[in-house]
């Protein structure tokens, strides 16, 4: 699956325009007008939302203009790829485990999420042997535990398993 740069430009501008519209909508709930004591809380965000929509539309026009201009000249510009299928897969292989780790951490705490993620990444992405990957995961968790719980005294989310073992 190849995504061209032009398609991505248009998609991004549409998304930002949508976000702008959403901001305008959200701001209207706070009131965008004036009272005796000055602007209502939604006044400033509403203006921001409008400017986002305007900027996005202008970007769309600019992209359209450029691809129209490029078309007679051999369509070179409109076919510049943004990302190809291979790149997309590599990207997902890196990003999805992080998202999975976050979801697991919600449930089992950050230390366990972190350990599983590091083990997975070292074993499968970096190609470590199982015991080396395991060792790396343990070291990372230990270092983080000392740094955050002991040095900076910022407790990270523990989750039910660590709490069962009396680690708060």
């Amino acid at each position: 699956m190849n995504i061209s740069r032009n398609a991505m430009e248009v998609a991004t501008a549409l998304v930002t325009a949508l976000v702008g519209a959403l901001i305008c909508y959200g701001a209207m709930e706070n009131g965008i007008g004036w009272t005796e004591s000055g602007p209502k809380p939604g006044y400033f965000p509403f203006g921001i939302g409008c400017l986002i929509v305007a900027g996005s539309v202008a970007t769309l026009v600019q992209v359209g203009w450029k691809s129209m201009a490029a078309r007679p000249a051999g369509e070179a510009d409109s076919l510049v790829p943004f990302i190809d299928g291979q790149g997309l897969r590599t990207l997902a292989a890196f990003f999805l485990p992080i998202a999975v780790m976050t979801a697991i951490s919600f449930w089992l705490g950050l230390y366990i999420g972190m350990a599983l993620y590091i083990f997975y990444a070292m074993r499968f992405a970096a190609g470590f042997r199982i015991h080396n990957a395991l060792l790396t995961a343990i070291i990372v968790v230990a270092v983080n535990f000392v740094v955050f719980e002991k040095l900076f005294m910022v407790p990270l989310l523990k989750g039910p398993i660590l709490e069962y073992f009396g680690i708060y």
Partner: peptide, 10 residues
Amino acid sequence: GPLIAIICVI
């Protein structure tokens, strides 16, 4: 990479 990712998440 994964180590930086961990730092970012934490």
